[in-house]
């Protein structure tokens, strides 16, 4: 059994769209279950009283990272066939910063705004329109920004290559960093008066106390 299945010709483009839809359903399901259809829940991350965004995101990163690493090690998954977005350092740094601004201003990121919109959040629907408008502006301005867009090109680059460390060592470092982060996150939530894990309660409790 060779993975990625699609890259080994297990099915064609049309079937891939069905796979996309099914994977999307599961993706949307877990985002909503985590509470990420709610802007208030999401931005709590930035007011340090509910760090569910960090916890969910890093648990997901660690889970998928360990899965791909071990499947690669076992020879089941050919990691070189997995698509990685090439690194363009400067636009990615600038884009990340602008996206971070947009996150705390708008209350969502593109994926979570879809879940918010699907569960009736009118602000999420307006937010999606905003994303479309921003995308259109980038498209129209593309000839102007193209030199910056293509700057800092480093190609397909991974952290193990940057740090000159074996892949498994970086995996271990990320796991340790995540665990440290989780301990810190729990401590911050306790300090914010959240109590037993369920983060959103902290925000509500804080509001009630005001």
């Amino acid at each position: 059994m060779n993975a990625p299945f699609f890259k080994f010709g297990a099915f064609g483009d049309e079937t891939a769209l069905v796979v996309a839809f099914v994977i999307g359903i599961a993706f949307g399901w877990f985002l909503e279950r985590a509470g990420f259809g709610s802007a208030k829940k999401l931005v709590s991350q930035f007011y340090l009283d509910d760090l569910a965004v960090f916890k969910v995101m890093f648990t997901a990163i660690v889970t998928a990272m360990l899965g791909t690493f071990y499947l690669g090690w076992l020879g089941v998954l050919d990691l070189s066939l997995v698509y990685l977005t090439p690194t363009n350092l400067w636009p990615q740094i600038a884009g990340g910063l602008v996206l971070g601004f947009g996150f705390v201003i708008g209350g969502y990121c593109p994926g979570t705004s879809m879940v918010g919109a699907a569960t009736g959040r009118i602000d999420a629907m307006v937010y999606v329109l905003g994303v479309a408008a921003g995308t259109f502006v980038v498209g129209e301005a593309f000839p102007l920004i193209k030199p910056f867009y293509e700057s800092g090109f480093l190609g397909r680059l991974t952290l193990p290559e940057v740090l000159h460390l074996p892949y498994g060592v970086v995996v271990l470092l990320v796991v340790l960093m995540a665990i440290g982060g989780f301990v810190g996150a729990e401590w911050l939530e306790k300090r914010a008066g959240s109590g037993a894990g369920s983060g959103a309660a902290s925000g509500a409790a804080k509001e009630a106390s005001r």
Partner: peptide
């Protein structure tokens, strides 16, 4: 925020 996100996501 959405518009900023749209710009940022395309750059990144």
């Amino acid at each position: 925020g959405g518009a900023l996100m749209g710009v940022g996501a395309k750059l990144a």
